[in-house]
Write a protein that binds this DNA or RNA. Structure first.
Lengths: 234, 234
DNA sequence: GTCTATAGCTTGATAGAC
DNA sequence: GTCTATCAAGCTATAGAC
């Protein structure tokens, strides 16, 4: 947890600007927001964006960085705890996925609203063709590698490709959740709500774990019977 | 398939502008692109954006609309064919998911490059908190409802909520694929490539179908034993 | 540290020649 | 239908008063 030390006068302003930027970038994307808007939202001044960050782009980087390190520490701890508390066979795939995603889902539900914005922003960046890959890799590849390492022990015979593609699907399902676009509300005529992150938390680990297991099992089958080469429609 | 009728002089220009806009919007988002850039890419003129579409925003809508209707027809046909060709028990969940996603994956692999851009654009919009839900619902809710109707016959005991949340996960996994951000390339040290849509096509139906089945089965269990109410971490 | 004022561009849009 | 010229508005960034 963040140390609640007293912030200097300037740091308060800086944080208010970051909060405002986080919220607006999450909602409308980097290019959809102006520094004037951010300053207005923060009840501050556009000139202070230059003063504290150097420019709009650097401010964006700082928004991403601010919660990344904290998040990585928490996720690492949770993964380690998950392994420590498991029986001699180690944790199940379900438990590992839950440990990996819990820090995000939990903060989206109970954390300060900034977390919600931050995750929505990650969701947008993840799906941005231009810099999505680079940015996400920069901040989050280490923890993902650590996650896959845990999975490998739970699925020892699973080929590497299947692990990476399974993670890819996990990643897509997770980040769409944080966008909270209201799509599922309309689609289900109000039965499900995209704001109901708890509903996702209750389902995602099982859903994704089943996928992991399936891809591994499928590959095992394929290895067993190596007769026909091409196998049907994509 | 689109009728290859002769286009009038003006329609050629219009199409070139839409192609350019599609490509650039897909890459950098609506606000990340200027009409000047689009005109340059199309080897045309900024003023013609107003002439043909009325403005930048209207042009964006036309980009989305252009392929939506065509796509919906194809997907409907493919779902119907999938049911027609299945045995008396109807198609499997795997087959339905393959039929639902095949028109997209196939065009991303073998279609003209415009399709790739279009799908990447859909991926960005899907994860955009502001208008993502509304836009996607507008164009694609009918085909999704038709898809879920097929799934209901393959999983007759599955509660509605589980179907909608399963579709949500499917949607996230699918659209991240089209972003082709290169993230999995870095993460896997080159073993997997985000440009390898064929790899996704070979895995996604099984992965997602396993998730659908799991959520349904889990709910069945829960209904069977109604003792303990709350059940663990998200 | 904060804010006013403004420089220097770029934006989306349009009037009007061809 | 196409393109040049241009407008008003809004942009990021900064110099300098306080």
């Amino acid at each position: 947890m963040a140390v609640a030390r007293k912030l200097g006068r300037g740091e308060v302003t800086r944080e208010k600007l970051l909060d405002a930027a986080e919220k607006l970038f999450a909602l409308k994307g980097f290019h959809g927001v102006t520094v004037r808007e951010i300053a207005r939202e923060a009840e501050s001044d556009p000139a202070l964006v230059t003063y504290y960050f150097g420019g709009k782009r650097e401010m964006f980087d700082d928004v991403l960085l601010r919660r990344a390190e904290q998040l990585n520490q928490i996720r690492l701890k949770e993964l380690e705890a998950c392994e420590r508390e498991a029986g001699p066979d180690g944790p199940t795939v379900e438990q590992i996925i839950a440990a990996f995603t819990h820090p995000l889902l939990e903060r989206s539900i109970h954390g300060d609203p900034g977390w919600k914005s931050y995750f929505a922003l990650l969701g947008q960046i993840t799906n941005a063709p231009d810099w999505g890959g680079a940015v996400m890799s920069k901040y989050y590849d280490p923890i993902v590698r650590r996650f896959l390492q845990s999975i490998r022990r739970a699925l020892p015979d699973c080929p590497e490709e299947e692990l990476f593609w399974s993670y890819h699907f996990l990643s897509g399902a997770l980040v769409l959740t944080f966008a909270e676009t209201g799509r599922i509300d309309t689609l289900s005529d109000g039965l499900c709500k995209s704001s109901d992150i708890k509903a996702v938390a209750d389902r995602l680990p099982d859903f994704i774990a089943a996928g992991f297991r399936r891809l591994c099992a499928k590959d095992a089958e394929a290895r067993a019977e190596r007769q026909k080469q091409t196998q049907g429609t994509p």
